[in-house]
Lab assay of single mutants.
Amino acid sequence: GSPGIQSFLPPGWEMRIAPNGRPFFIDHNTKTTTWEDPRLK
């Protein structure tokens, strides 16, 4: 199987799917959430 997208996120980050189907990202380091992919910064 191919590695999940989770493995490509920075340490402490998690990806979830919102009720509307959009992915969002949780930064457990700062306890914040964002719509922006942290890998694109």
Rank of each mutant, 00 (worst) to 15 (best):
G1I: 11
W13E: 00
T34V: 05
S2V: 12
P23L: 10
L40M: 11
W13H: 00
D37P: 11
T33S: 10
R39F: 05
E14W: 02
P10I: 05
F8H: 14
Q6Y: 03
T32A: 07
F8Q: 15
E14S: 09
R16E: 04
L40F: 11
I5F: 13
W13T: 00
L9D: 01
N20V: 01
F8P: 15
G12W: 05
W35L: 06
T32Q: 10
F8R: 12
K41M: 15
T30S: 09
G4E: 14
T30H: 07
G4N: 13
F8V: 14
K41Q: 15
N29G: 06
T34R: 03
S7V: 11
Q6L: 08
F25H: 00
T32E: 07
M15T: 03
F8M: 09
P10F: 06
K31C: 15
S7H: 13
N29L: 10
L9G: 01
M15A: 05
A18C: 15
F8L: 13
D27N: 11
G1A: 14
D27V: 01
P23N: 07
T34L: 03
L40V: 11
I17T: 08
P38S: 01
T33V: 15
H28F: 08
E36D: 12
E36A: 10
G12E: 02
T30A: 07
F25Y: 11
P3H: 12
M15P: 00
S2E: 13
Q6A: 14
D27G: 00
R22P: 02
R22I: 10
F24S: 02
P23T: 10
A18P: 03
E36L: 14
R16F: 09
G1W: 13
E14V: 08
A18Q: 05
T33M: 15
I5E: 13
S2G: 13
W13R: 00
G1K: 11
A18L: 09
P10E: 04
P11Q: 11
G4D: 14
Q6E: 14
T30R: 07
G4K: 11
N20F: 04
P10M: 06
I5D: 13
N20Q: 03
P23R: 12
Q6S: 13
A18I: 03
D27W: 03
G21F: 03
K31P: 03
P38Q: 02
I5A: 14
I26H: 04
N29S: 08
R22Q: 10
